[in-house]
Design a protein around this nucleic acid. Structure first.
Length: 221
DNA sequence: CGCCAGGGCCATA
DNA sequence: TATGGCCATGGC
């Protein structure tokens, strides 16, 4: 199993996606913070509280106590309110303009983001890839779990998993975007902590968490 | 009732 | 550098 083949399998079922459930790049950034260890459905409730007026100007102006009320459904609201303020302050360096920000070198931007309180590796890469459109590969809990269930022996650290993909794939935004998108969509349905395997194109014999992915060769042609 | 969810910070060794 | 406790809501 290699990343190219894995992607072939995923794309065969989910196609070419241009993904991240948000209406604007800034909403991607907000979603990336709010979804930290949180069910996406709760993030949607929080974002809906802004009634379509979720802008960096609003978050900048909003007192923390009020911001907390907006994002309450997403949990961890005391810290996340601060994190949203911090990330928004970072974005302001580029006049709240993703095209301006994206002109900077990728590695410099990544270091900047990692220096923002509340932004770790996954959040940084999500912002770079899905908000700025830069080729930074995103690794999340689903990605690690998928590789584990596939029986792929990679040390489950962010760097090692990321390297497993990027060292063997072309450095392309659309490819990075689609791989992570397919993994999230597949895993939301079938690769939770307690897997639900009926109908999964890649799983078989899942019994109460001990399940493993079927040899993909036997599933996809 | 308990487990889980698209992490990250901070204290400690 | 590598663990462990902590943060909090809502769905099941």
């Amino acid at each position: 199993m290699n990343p190219h083949y894995l992607y072939t399998l995923l794309a065969a079922h989910y196609g070419e996606l241009d993904w991240w459930p948000a209406d604007s790049p800034y909403e991607v950034m907000v979603g990336a913070i709010l979804t930290q260890n949180t069910a996406w459905e709760n993030v949607e409730k929080a974002i809906a509280n802004f009634n379509g007026s979720l802008t960096p100007q609003l978050i900048e102006a909003l007192p923390i106590a009020e911001l907390i009320q907006y994002i309450r459904p997403a949990g961890f609201f005391n810290q996340k309110a601060v994190y949203l303020k911090e990330l928004t302050a970072w974005f302001k360096r580029y006049s709240y303009n993703v095209a301006t920000a994206a002109q900077q070198p990728l590695d410099a931007l990544r270091r900047e983001l990692l220096a923002v309180k509340g932004v770790g590796e996954e959040t940084a890469d999500s912002v770079l890839l899905y908000a700025l459109g830069l080729p930074s590969f995103v690794v999340d809990a689903y990605t690690k779990r998928l590789l584990s269930r596939l029986g792929i022996s990679v040390k489950p650290t962010y760097r090692d998993v990321q390297h497993w993909f990027t060292s063997q794939l072309p450095r392309e935004v659309s490819l990075y975007n689609n791989i992570h998108a397919c993994i999230v969509i597949l895993c939301k349905e079938y690769c939770r902590a307690k897997p639900k395997c009926e109908g999964c194109p890649m799983l078989s014999n899942c019994k109460n968490g001990t399940a493993d992915f079927q040899k993909p060769e036997r599933i996809c042609k």
